[in-house]
C-alpha cells in the first residue's frame, strides 16, 4: 500500500468517525435526537383515545405549549394554530389512516407519522411569521393539498 493511500484512508476513516461522534454528541448529550417516540395507539380508535380525543393546543409552561394533533386524509386537526414568538411547542402527532409526514417549512421539524405510533416533535419558533405545515409523505390523491399554517405573532 502506498503512503498516499494510507494517508487517504486515514483521512477517510477520520472523517466518518467525526460524523459519527458529532451525530452522537448532538443526539445524546445535547438532546437533539431525531423525532420519534415509542408510545403506541390503536389506529382505528384514535378518536376515543386520550389525548387524541381532544386535539388542540394547550399552554403547559412559560411560553411553552403542547399541541395534540391528528393527521388524516388530507388534513390536520387542529388547523391554523397561533403561538407567540419564542414559543416552544411540543407536538404529539398520530395518524388516523395511512402513513403521513409532518414538516414545518423553514424549520427542522420533520417526521413520519405512522399509524399505531405517536410521533413527538419539538420546535421553538423564534421568528414571527406564517409557517407552512405540510404532509411530506405521499398519502393519496389529495396529498398535495394536505397543508395548514402556524401563525407566530
Amino acid at each position: 500500500m502506498h503512503k498516499s493511500e494510507k494517508v487517504w484512508l486515514t483521512i477517510s476513516f477520520g472523517m466518518i468517525m467525526l460524523f459519527m461522534i458529532a451525530t452522537g454528541y448532538q443526539a445524546f448529550a445535547l438532546g437533539m435526537a431525531p423525532p420519534g417516540g415509542v408510545e403506541l395507539i390503536d389506529p382505528q380508535k384514535v378518536n376515543e383515545t386520550a389525548p387524541f380525543d381532544q386535539p388542540g393546543i394547550k399552554q403547559i409552561g412559560d411560553n411553552e405549549y403542547e399541541v395534540v394533533m391528528t393527521l388524516q386524509l388530507f388534513s390536520f386537526t387542529p388547523m391554523e394554530l397561533e403561538v407567540p414568538a419564542g414559543a416552544t411547542v411540543h407536538f404529539k402527532l398520530t395518524s388516523k389512516d395511512v402513513v403521513h409526514g409532518f414538516q414545518i417549512v423553514g424549520t427542522n421539524a420533520n417526521g413520519m407519522i405512522v399509524p399505531g405510533y405517536i410521533t413527538d416533535i419539538t420546535q421553538t419558533f423564534h421568528e414571527p411569521g406564517e409557517y407552512l405545515v405540510i404532509c411530506n409523505e405521499y398519502c393519496g390523491i389529495g396529498h398535495q393539498v394536505m397543508a395548514t399554517t402556524i401563525k407566530v405573532y
Binding site: 431525531p34 420519534g36 415509542v38
Partner: peptide, 10 residues
Amino acid sequence: HQIVDPGISD
C-alpha cells in the same frame, strides 16, 4: 431511511 420514524429507539 427511517431516521425520523417513531417506534425505533435512538
